[in-house]
């Protein structure tokens, strides 16, 4: 399971969607990197991800990895945020059978996993259908 330090290190991304924009080519790295995947640039400015986007593809997980067994079936999708950045996350509060490519979704703060009954609770983002 995820230990405290490993969980804590990603808090700026998981809680606040902090990303890094390449000063040279403008590509946004989420999570931030030391080297730009687009141009190998090394200078970045901090940016915050857009919090709404469109479902590009998705699946509904019926056979889950350890720790997610209680939640099946659950949807996971790749969403293109309105700033063009793509992220993978669960899509929840929806009827999985009615989910479709192109659906508009927004980010919400949720519990992602927990280290058993006595370990730390890991928070982060999931997508939910956007109103309207």
């Amino acid at each position: 399971m995820i230990g405290s330090a490993r969980y804590w290190r990603e808090i700026p991304q998981r809680y606040r969607y902090e990303a890094a924009k390449c000063a040279k080519c403008g590509r946004v790295a989420f999570p931030p990197r030391l080297v730009c995947a687009g141009c190998r640039g090394r200078e970045f400015t901090p940016v915050k991800l857009a919090q709404t986007g469109v479902v590009e593809t998705f699946t509904v997980i019926h056979v889950a990895p350890t720790g997610f067994g209680d939640e099946t079936p659950y949807a996971v999708g790749i969403v293109k945020l309105d700033d063009g950045v793509r992220v993978t996350a669960q899509i929840t509060d929806c009827e999985t059978g009615k989910l479709a490519i192109g659906d508009r979704v927004k980010l919400e703060f949720r519990r992602l996993q927990q280290d058993g009954e006595s370990g730390i609770i890991c928070y982060g983002y999931k997508f939910v259908p956007a109103i309207g």
């Binding site: 056979v63 990895p65 992602l112």
Partner: peptide, 28 residues
């Protein structure tokens, strides 16, 4: 546990953290 072990080939923090599996990634 096997599903988890296989999923370590994906990005642990930004794919697997969200409960995705290998069949799930290929399904997408």
């Amino acid at each position: 546990a096997a599903t988890y072990a296989l999923s370590t080939a994906a990005d642990q923090e930004y794919e697997c953290y969200h409960g995705i599996t290998f069949p799930g990634l290929y399904a997408m």
